[in-house]
């Protein structure tokens, strides 16, 4: 079995690598939590790329039912076909539509299955998948057939903590909490994304970024993905590093702050704090 060591576009810290490799070696699901924008979803993509597997994604919405991941029985088309006298109607299997889990189980080589934002669904959703994820098999009542995985897929589950997950479900998973990267890790991440970034610009940008994150009472702290967007903007607009360095009282908030601060209360708060800060200094 290949080990996951991060990829050229994804910086995986050691703890994350251990967690991913444990999940691969023991064929158990890996549950990933962390602040929004710290690369939870991307992780599954990178695992698939890093160890050369296919990726199957199942995005969960508030209305998603566990059953939809297994299969759905298309009763309406069968009724319609029955009315039209279609031959297909005699075999119920024609109306069973496989879901993402089925797809992953039937794949020729073990794929990576991403169950994205599991906390969006109803509170009972994880419980409904317990057995399926544990044994990697399920039973189709309509055709009286058991679908079991040819190769156990590598399951990556992400959660944004909107709902508490049941204990029984957690026991079956490996768990990893993606901590917000510190400055050195962040530097690596940016190096990976913008290899030719000027050193000065990076330093100034990071200073401002971590300063913003330190501001108490922000509603939404900017995270890695926001920082990357912001740097992209700075590059596109060709903002020179000294603009970031000048602490001109007239320009209280950093240029192109729209990429970092996502609601107007935060912008106001930041302006006010920056103003007070300058006044204290001056």
């Amino acid at each position: 079995m290949r080990r996951f060591e991060g990829t050229d576009t994804y910086v995986a810290t050691q703890d994350l690598r251990v967690a991913v490799n444990a999940a691969i070696a023991l064929e158990r699901p890996l549950l990933v939590k962390g602040e929004p924008g710290t690369g939870k979803t991307i992780l599954a993509h990178e695992i698939a790329r890093g160890i050369g597997k296919d990726l199957i994604t199942w995005h969960i919405k508030s209305t998603t039912k566990a059953q939809q991941g297994l299969y759905e029985y298309d009763a309406v088309s069968r009724l319609r076909d029955g009315q039209l006298g279609d031959e297909r109607v005699h075999d119920i299997a024609n109306y069973i539509v496989p879901g993402k889990l089925w797809e992953a189980f039937e794949a020729a080589a073990a794929p990576v299955l991403l169950i994205d934002e599991i906390d969006k669904a109803d509170i009972e959703f994880p419980n409904d998948l317990l057995l399926e994820l544990d044994r990697m098999e399920f039973y189709v009542y309509e055709t009286r057939r058991t679908i079991s995985a040819r190769h156990r897929p590598i399951v990556v589950i992400t959660s944004n903590n909107e709902k508490e997950l049941p204990d029984a479900f957690l026991r079956r998973c490996f768990f990893h909490y993606i901590r917000f990267p510190d400055r050195t890790t962040m530097q690596q991440i940016i190096d990976v994304h913008f290899p030719n970034l000027k050193h000065e610009l990076l330093r100034e940008a990071l200073t401002i970024f971590y300063e913003i994150r330190e501001v108490p009472g922000l509603k939404k702290k900017p995270s890695t993905s926001e920082l990357l967007d912001w740097i992209k903007l700075l590059l596109v607009e060709d903002v020179p590093p000294d603009v970031l360095r000048t602490r001109d009282p007239a320009k209280l908030i950093p240029p192109l702050h729209g990429a970092l601060l996502k609601n107007e209360q935060d912008v106001h708060l930041f302006e006010r704090l920056a103003f007070l800060h300058r006044r204290e200094r001056g």
Partner: peptide
């Protein structure tokens, strides 16, 4: 999964024992 390295062992123990 974690061989002869206390730090790796720590990460492994953490990922398998802690769920929250």
């Amino acid at each position: 999964v974690a061989a002869f390295d206390i730090e790796e062992f720590y990460f492994l123990a953490r990922t398998s024992l802690v769920k929250d």
